Structures are given as C-alpha cells and as structure tokens.
Amino acid sequence: MEGLSGADADLVVYLHPSKSMKVSQGILRELSSLLFKFNKTFGGVLLAYDVNILDKQAKILSGVHPYFGLRLKANLLLFSPKSDMLLEGKVVKLSQESIHVIVLGFSSAIIATENIRGEFKYKTKDEEELFASRSHKRHVIKIGTMIRFSVKSFDEEILHIIGSLMPAHTGSIRWLDRNLEEISEFERSATKSRDRECQEDKTVDEGATPLSYNNHIKKSKKRRNKEG
C-alpha cells in the first residue's frame, strides 16, 4: 500500500527530573504521545518507532523546571497519503450514497457515489447492501470487503480521507489480485479502441482537404465560363 514510509530521525526528548530513575520509560511515554497524530515535523502520522539512546549522560536544561534532554536516534514508520495514491482499507458501512472505510485501523475514509465509477451498481441482495460490478459479476463490494481506492484529499487534523473508485485498478482487493491480467487486457483494448477512433478521425480530416480543393477548382472554372 502506498502512503507508508520509513524515516531516520535525530531527536531530543526532554524529561522531568522525576523521570531520571526511569529514563527509558519516560522516553517511551513521550514518543507514545505522538502516535496516530499528524506531525508537521515528520510530515506524516507516526505509526511506530524504534529508538536508540545516544546520550550516556543527560544534559540539564536551566529554567523554572530543570528538565533534562536526551538525544535519540529513531527509526519511524509514517503514514502520509497524497492525492492519487492507492490505499487499502476495510469497508465498515455502505449505503446507496457512500462507502465508509477504515484504513490501518485508525483513519476513516469515505467514497461518495460521485466518486464511484459507473461500472458499480448499488443493490440489495438477501437484505445485504452492496455495490456489484456490471462488467464482472464476481466483483462485489460489501461490508467487510477489503478494497483498494485512490486518494482525492486528506484532512490532517482529523485524519479523514476522501477516496475514489474511479480508476479501473480500484475495487475489491481479492478480486483485483485474481484478475490483474484481465484488467490490463481491458485497459489495452480501451487504449487501442481510442487510438483507432483517433486514426479514423484523422483520415477523414485529411481526405476533406483535397475534396474541398477540387470543389473550389470546379467552382472557379464555372465562374470563368460564365464571365466569358
């Protein structure tokens, strides 16, 4: 899945003197407070970390509260979705107007009907709501389905994603993984069809020029004969 990345960071964590006997615990508590929140410094949502304490002796900071700082080397796992990236999530709610998805267990996404390609048709089967493909009978999206969708926008403050199922390579992950070759063949056929239509249009345009030119010559000859 796109949107996930690793990063190496040099950090300084400031701890209260009361934590001096439990430094490791204090560091982990401070870093844990950053989890599942968007951080501008990191440029994404912190999902996980692995740290190595570099300082053997903490540096005392002067001030009202004598905090001490420790330098860390950290490996971070970040979530930073951008427009047109492909994400994966589980459908948790579905209606005629929208599909609601949970990504990585914490971020919510919504895909409105205007962002669902016409191939999918909403219907109810055995009292269960679903979106079924008109082109592929087994391509079905319902509650519990893991889907792949593209990102239209991402609200960093509330970690909310606006998604889309317009691209041909989006939909049920299970169906997509089994039918990648069929999708590729469909896209190639569509491309060839468009190229063929463009070529036909070009041929017609090219043929129109001499025809118009000949008509112009005939009209000019008739005009000269009348004048003569």
Results as ranks from 00 to 15, higher is better:
Ser153Met: 01
Glu181His: 10
Glu185Trp: 05
Met146Gln: 09
Ser133Tyr: 06
Leu130His: 02
Glu156Pro: 00
Arg188Cys: 03
Leu130Arg: 12
Ile143Tyr: 00
Glu182Asn: 10
Ser189Gln: 15
Ile141Gln: 02
Glu182His: 05
Gly171Ala: 09
Val151Ala: 04
Glu156Gly: 00
Arg138Gly: 14
Thr170Trp: 07
Ile141Lys: 02
Arg138Gln: 14
Pro167Lys: 12
Ile158Ala: 06
Ile161Pro: 03
Leu159Asp: 11
Lys142Ser: 09
Ser164Ala: 08
Leu130Asp: 00
Arg178Pro: 01
Phe154Gln: 05
Gly163Pro: 03
Lys152Pro: 00
Ile162Ser: 12
Val140Ser: 04
His160Val: 08
Arg188Pro: 00
Glu182Lys: 12
His136Met: 09
His160Cys: 01
Gly171Glu: 03
Thr145Pro: 04
Leu159Ser: 12
Phe186Lys: 10
Ser133Phe: 06
Ser189Tyr: 04
His136Glu: 08
Leu176Val: 11
Ser133Glu: 05
Ile141Arg: 02
Met146Cys: 10
His139Ile: 09
Met166His: 07
Ser172Asn: 11
Leu176Gln: 01
Asp177Gln: 13
Ser164Glu: 08
Arg174Val: 10
Asp177Phe: 02
Arg174Asp: 11
Gly144Ala: 07
Ile161Trp: 02
Leu165Gly: 04
Glu187His: 04
His169Thr: 14
Phe131Asp: 08
Leu180His: 05
Ile141Asn: 01
Asp177Thr: 11
Ser164Met: 07
Ser150Lys: 12
Ala168His: 03
Thr145Leu: 01
Arg134Pro: 00
Met146His: 14
Gly144His: 05
His139Glu: 14
Glu157Ala: 14
Ile158Gln: 09
Lys152Trp: 01
Ser164Gly: 04
Ser184Cys: 02
Phe186Val: 03
Pro167Cys: 14
Asp177Asn: 14
Ala168Thr: 13
Leu165Gln: 04
Glu181Arg: 12
